[in-house]
Design a protein around this nucleic acid. Structure first.
Length: 944
RNA sequence: GCCCUGGUGGUGGAAUCGGUAGACACGCAGGACUUAAAAUCCUGUGACCAUUGCGGUCGUGCGGGUUCAAGUCCCGCCCGGGGUACCA
């Protein structure tokens, strides 16, 4: 019988479904293995061949682990809240839930065809109320928590209140914004008086008595400064025309990517998550997990730890100080000016009357640019002198103060001390504005640029003269502490994460507002479900879509009309798979204790600074609060690469309707046009299909090459509809079968590498499966499997394959496994081996890669059980080694010939045998060997 | 600029610990079978030189180095992919 993959795959998929083969339960007698794929957003376009790459790899690994006796949790679900469904709803009025449902059905159909071993009973969808009930619960939990800087741990907010009751905020160090107390002083009560009783110079300390005398409103705002999710005014990219906030990557050249509308910077009251408190934990945790080094690096950079010092500069004519952060306190003696961000709060206060108009103009100009624009600006170091001077803390000399938009308000203190001798940017700024430099490095000629090395001894630096590096760094910090003008400081780039979105299709907040204060809705009333709206657009006065519903809590209190961002649901979904139907908790303690951390996480590297950071953040919080038994969500991670498309091109001669074959196109002036890859086979164009493709090509004429063919050009690029290079898995499953597709995607190369999709090679893999089939059955359907014992060479072939396949899977080398199995099948075919003892083991080896065919072959060989239930074969040592080894013999490192010798021989005997060999004399050319290197079972090298 | 990756035949890739570079496929060329095509099978296939056979030289982005031995280790460059940035 021919390899009839269509009927085989249909048969076994139905069988597995009927048997519930992939259902999994906690079983404390078995070791667990949790292998997870990043769940997809179910887009309307469906899957292309790139999407299942990671799923295939993880599915193979899950099946391998099952054979090894592990209890494997391998679930799948959908990240089903998101923008595309909402956009579609705006255009068509169709409810996003309906669109999402449809897309999920299509995804499921496509996934099912590929034969994945997901336990679909555990499916989760982030948009289902049963699921987002717990997203809301986690939000509330985070709201009711604070972070203790001393112990570096999340604590319930009640414990902070208790501390305040006892000692005010003495002896307690909750994570918060540096100037949290300043923002409280701006608040007013109903009478328009300051809400708090602290004077304008309050430094943030308060006593137990202060706390006890606070009213409920005062305590609300005070606590908000310490909660791990909090309401605060933050700068957002507001697009008035679209009525929504845009993410940075939704803006191109200062206008919205969609529609090209202007975008302005606006302060909005938003929920934020205090991820900045976890900077150090997130950084250190990376050392405890096995992730690809590049992802760890991306996260480290994103967290952006820098160690340095805070320095306070007194002002010449004002009480206030300017606080700067620097990583080079050792260069403090070289300060020639300070630069403030245009938004710095002291700017208007210190600017002199002569400079005021210039400064105002500059500040206004800067406000029009968003942060990203500003960074793209030219290198000409724009800035304006404020007219004010600071006083150098050591030399007491005047230091001019500038503003410049290269200083960002959002990083550090929004102010920098400039040392032109030691920083290239400061050097550029000084040159441009003709500010005198202070030279502080030995032998440094500052006419060319700054000296950025830390290893050059200092000069003109008073007590630091002659020192450099960390010695100077530490000595300066000591000196700063002594004169009380600075201290050691660690700064992080990581910012708190905005958690509000002005969208419809996302999780609603379990929050309403009473007297302007946010109130959490009781756990018993969760989930708070999405209300119906007439349109999925913002209201006329710019409120989010949910406001259209006139939604009220208890019929009187305004609800929070924002929704949660996309990363909310995906930050904890791996927990829900453990116990997806649980109504009492995110998952039962038993289930979480059993399944624990994800052992292997497979997904794209593009989530490095989003999902992969946020889910670590939430896991740490939940772990600290003892809701879950582990502190890092994903132990081992592998990033699959992207599969790129191979686009085909035709070449039209300019201003004609003539197309010229790619190999002849240089002779003409041509225009390159896409041709759909379905009309191209082996770069040869199906001319008739092309003519019928689009009306404009109907009367096209073709200049063929000498073989009478029309060749297409090609390019490797991202798969996309507009490039006509999308290859769907469905077509390939139809044509070659799921097993072939699975093997081929693995055979393409290492999973973590990006590579072009090219269907050319798929025949080779398909042939391999056919040759495998022929070991069991000839083309007439006669079963060849025999019960006679196998010959030694066949057993050697088998056991070598077992060893190689097992080793390669253990080191996640999916591609080489296919090669090893091909080699085994080629050898067994040559040996005409049809022995059941060999073939049964071969079927088990094959089953992770080609599960349908493996089941079929297992059955053909006369077995009644399922191949999936068989334990993984063990490679027997006696069949792994030959009696002889073919030694390569090299002369001065050049390999000349092989000699077969018994593996029993020791190095001296090998040397003797080689020297006795007839060819040795020839290659010695009369020389005496100076040295002979023998590495047993590897190589012989003769040095002359 | 900085950080992370990668660079091997016509193509995808293999070489796991410093030990025979190019496994396994694709493609291509030639042959067998066939009226023919497909399918299948066989042979060859890194480049260059020599071919009557034996064989020889070069070769893993480039230039150096360490070593008996380097795709693999070290130093200095070049190019591609990704991340990030007036980050103080």
């Amino acid at each position: 019988m021919e390899y009839n993959f269509q009927s085989i795959e249909k048969k076994w998929q139905a069988h597995w479904k009927e048997q519930g083969s992939y259902r999994v339960k906690e079983d404390t007698n078995k070791k667990k293995f949790y292998i997870l794929d990043m769940f997809p957003y179910p887009s309307g376009a469906g899957l292309h061949v790139g999407h299942p790459l990671g799923y295939i790899a993880s599915d193979i690994f899950a099946r391998f682990k099952r054979h090894q006796g592990f209890n494997v949790l391998h679930p799948m679900g959908y990240d089903s809240f998101g923008l595309p469904a909402e956009q579609y709803a705006i255009q068509t009025g169709q409810h996003p839930a309906i669109t999402t449902e449809k897309n999920i059905a299509r995804y499921r159909e496509q996934l099912d065809k590929i034969g994945f071993s997901f336990d679909w009973d555990r499916e989760v969808r982030t948009s289902s109320p049963e699921y987002y009930k717990w997203t809301q619960w986690i939000f509330k939990t985070i709201y009711n928590s604070w972070f203790d800087n001393t112990t570096q741990k999340t604590m319930p907010i009640a414990s902070l209140i208790e501390a305040f009751e006892k000692n005010g905020n003495y002896n307690v160090s909750p994570a918060c914004d540096d100037n949290w107390h300043a923002s409280l002083l701006e608040l007013k009560n109903n009478e328009g008086q300051p809400l708090y009783f602290f004077g304008a110079n309050w430094n943030g300390e308060f006593t137990a008595t202060d706390w006890q005398s606070m009213n409920e409103e005062q305590r609300y705002h005070l606590l908000m400064c310490f909660r791990l999710t909090y309401l605060a005014d933050s700068m957002v990219n507001w697009c008035p025309a679209l009525g929504t906030v845009l993410a940075n990557d939704e803006i191109k050249d200062g206008v919205s990517e969609r529609g090209g509308h202007p975008v302005v910077q606006k302060k909005m009251r938003q929920w934020s998550m205090r991820i900045s408190a976890f900077a150090e934990r997130l950084l250190n945790g990376l050392d405890t997990i096995e992730w690809p080094e590049n992802i760890k690096e991306i996260q480290r950079n994103w967290i952006g730890k820098s160690e340095g010092a805070t320095v306070f500069f007194d002002l010449e004519k004002h009480q206030e100080q300017i606080e700067v952060f620097t990583t080079r306190p050792d260069t403090l003696m070289g300060v020639s000016f300070l630069t403030l961000a245009p938004e710095h709060p002291l700017v208007s206060q210190i600017t002199t009357d002569e400079q005021r108009s210039a400064v105002n103009e500059y500040v206004e100009k800067a406000a029009l640019k968003n942060e990203r624009d500003r960074q793209v600006q030219s290198k000409e170091m724009s800035g304006v002198f404020t007219g004010a001077f600071a006083i150098h803390p050591f030399t007491q000399k005047q230091v001019p103060i500038y503003i410049g938009d290269y200083v960002l308000a959002g990083y550090g203190t929004g102010a920098v001390m400039a040392v032109p001798a030691g920083d290239q940017r400061d050097w550029d700024f000084a040159k441009h504005h003709n500010i005198p430099m202070v030279l502080i490095f030995e032998n440094h000629d500052a006419s060319e640029g700054a000296c950025t090395s830390k290893e050059v001894p200092l000069i003109h630096s008073d007590f630091l003269n002659g020192l450099c590096g960390s010695e100077a760094f530490n000595k300066m910090i000591e000196a700063l502490l002594e004169i009380q003008h600075g201290n050691r400081k660690v700064n992080y780039r990581l910012r708190d994460a905005v958690f509000s979105r002005q969208r419809y299709w996302g999780e609603p907040f379990p929050v309403y507002f009473k007297d302007g204060q946010a109130q959490m809705i009781d756990d018993q009333q969760l989930p708070v479900t999405l209300p119906e709206v007439d349109k999925y657009l913002p209201t006329e006065d710019g409120e989010p879509p949910l406001a259209r519903s006139q939604w009220k809590y208890d019929n009187q209190f305004v609800m929070e009309y924002n929704t949660m961002p996309g990363w909310a649901g995906s930050s904890w979904y791996f927990l829900r798979y453990m116990d997806p139907q649980n109504n009492d908790f995110i998952a039962s303690k038993e289930a979480m204790n059993y399944w624990g951390q994800v052992d292997l996480y497979m997904g794209g590297a593009e989530h490095a600074t989003g999902h992969l950071l946020y889910s670590r953040f939430w896991t740490m919080i939940l772990h600290d609060l003892e809701h879950i038994p582990f502190g890092e969500p994903f132990y081992k991670m592998i990033n699959q690469g992207m599969i790129l498309g191979r686009s085909s091109f035709v070449y039209r001669i300019k201003d004609t309707n003539q197309f010229v074959s790619a190999d002849l196109r240089k002779e003409y002036n041509t225009q390159q046009l896409y041709a759909d890859i379905s009309m191209v086979d082996n770069d040869k164009l199906d001319i008739e299909a092309f003519k019928n493709w689009l009306p404009e090509y109907q009367n096209a004429e073709f200049i063929l090459n000498e073989k009478g063919e029309y060749l297409c050009g090609f390019e490797v690029e991202k798969m996309s509809k507009s490039k006509y290079n999308v290859q769907t898995p469905d077509e390939l499953v139809e044509k070659f079968g799921a097993d072939t597709l699975r093997c081929y995607e693995m055979f393409l190369g290492p999973v973590e590498q990006s590579k072009p999709w090219d269907t050319k090679g798929i025949n080779g893999v398909h042939n391999f499966l056919r040759r495998m089939t022929r070991l069991y059955q000839n083309d007439e359907g006669v079963i060849l499997v025999v019960n006679t014992p196998a010959e030694k060479p066949s057993l050697q072939t088998l056991h070598r394959a077992i060893k190689k396949v097992t080793d390669d899977l253990n080191r996640f080398s999916w591609n080489t496994v296919v090669s090893s199995m091909m080699i085994a099948v080629n050898e067994l075919t040559e040996q005409k081996c049809h022995s059941k003892e060999v073939l049964d083991n071969m079927a088990i080896l094959l089953s992770p890669y080609a599960p349908h065919l493996a089941e079929e072959l297992w059955e053909i060989a006369g077995n009644t059980s399922s191949v999936m239930d068989q334990s993984w074969p063990i490679a027997l040592k006696e069949f792994l080694e030959d009696d002889t080894f073919s030694y390569p013999v090299s002369f001065n490192g050049k390999m000349r010939f092989n000699i077969d010798l018994s593996v029993q021989l020791n190095a001296a005997d090998v040397e003797k045998a080689v020297l006795a060999h007839e060819k040795t004399a020839h290659y010695l050319e009369g020389n005496t060997p100076k040295k002979i290197i023998v590495v047993p079972k590897r190589i012989v090298n003769i040095v002359m």
